[in-house]
């Protein structure tokens, strides 16, 4: 297995090179003036566009610009983010934990709920439960995330005043600011850092702020996983081994959960892996509505403002995430189905 993993990691370098060339090429289709305009915000500043083109060598040949950028990246300098007003690397560690925290809670729920709903739907096929679950799935999948998030916010925050937007309550936020030595940002995620610093109130409040974003994420995304699981289970339950298994005395629960569900999990692992990987770039709608400035928000703002260093860095990051996700999926395949050997 180790040679397999090493091969995949070597493959990562090729992927990153390919992705960076592709994205760089696309960004170069914007004129040097347009790329320089990213640095200005008002008509007053527009007079400096020619200077900016010159200062940053934006009219140099494409390969010169690429080599220059690559040289900087190799030395660990990912550039300056205009949107974040910080170096890209530093900004990344501010935004990524926000997205990761949301996914840490949402992803297990999505996977568990998707598998459970899909399994139960298949087992109780064409019953009221199955119909309800499918309607729930279709509604969830069809709902525009932005709209659903807004409705949740209006009801639970606007009307019931229960789950506020943001990341942490202002009073707690100020309390932490006043005690920089007592509260260490180990992970950048308040739910975990609160516990690590012995301040459970911080963790609880951060959880309170996560309820609506996690609910939105789960309801909108779970449908896909549930559908895949349901189809897989139905297919497995119709296979020849099910009747002999029952004839040999295996109870229904064993047949469903130990045999059929295990076999049906292979496509689910693929989809779940991709979903988790994709979720690392954040959900723009969830982050905007619930005012959690994470990766999705950063990427959207950077794309709008043509913040090139950020766009390039995000592409590299997503390249890494997807190669690692696929690697993990392959390893999980082998774990779920011993017939699959990694070589």
């Amino acid at each position: 297995m180790i040679p397999f993993i090493l091969r995949r990691l070597l493959f990562l370098i090729l992927v990153l090179f390919g992705v960076s060339v592709l994205i760089f090429g696309i960004l170069m289709t914007f004129s040097p003036e347009r790329r320089a305009a990213a640095y200005v915000t008002t008509p007053q500043q527009a007079k400096d566009i020619p200077n900016l083109v010159r200062q940053y060598g934006l009219d140099d040949p494409v390969y010169v610009q690429y080599v220059r950028w690559m040289g900087e990246v190799i030395t660990g300098n990912l550039g300056w983010s205009l949107v974040a007003a910080r170096p890209v690397g530093e900004a990344f560690w501010r935004y990524f934990p926000i997205t990761l925290e949301l996914n840490l809670f949402a992803s297990p729920l999505i996977i568990w709920l998707g598998i459970w709903l899909g399994t139960q739907s298949a087992i109780h096929r064409n019953t009221a439960f199955d119909h309800s679950a499918r309607v729930f799935a279709i509604v969830g999948w069809s709902l525009p995330t932005f709209l659903f998030a807004l409705v949740l916010l209006m009801v639970f925050y606007g009307y019931f005043r229960m789950f506020p937007p943001g990341i942490l309550d202002d009073s707690l936020s100020l309390y932490i600011m006043d005690r920089p030595d007592a509260f260490v940002r180990y992970t950048g995620m308040y739910t975990i850092d609160g516990l690590l610093n012995g301040m459970p109130a911080v963790s609880l409040d951060a959880l309170r702020h996560l309820v609506l974003p996690v609910t939105t994420q789960v309801i909108v995304v779970v449908a896909l996983l549930m559908r895949v699981m349901r189809s897989g289970m139905i297919e497995e339950l119709s296979k020849d081994y099910v009747v002999p298994a029952r004839a040999k005395g295996a109870d229904l629960k064993t047949v469903h959960l130990a045999h059929a569900r295990k076999n049906a999990l292979i496509p689910v692992v693929t989809v779940a892996g991709q979903l988790v990987g994709l979720s690392m770039e954040g959900s723009i709608a969830v982050e905007v509505v619930f005012n959690r400035q994470g990766m999705g928000w950063w990427l959207a703002e950077s794309a709008t403002q043509l913040d090139m260093p950020v766009l390039m860095a995000m592409c590299l990051f997503m390249g890494v995430v997807f190669v690692l996700t696929n690697l993990t999926i392959d390893i999980l395949y082998a774990a779920i189905d011993p017939r699959i050997r990694l070589a």
């Binding site: 807004l150 209006m154 606007g158 202002d170 619930f290």
Partner: peptide, 22 residues
């Protein structure tokens, strides 16, 4: 004594925060 300026991009979120006194 203390003033907090928050960047809240979405108007509906801002409006709810104003209505709720946050």
């Amino acid at each position: 004594e203390t003033a907090i300026f928050k960047y809240v991009k979405e108007w509906s979120t801002r409006k709810l925060m104003l209505q709720n006194g946050d």
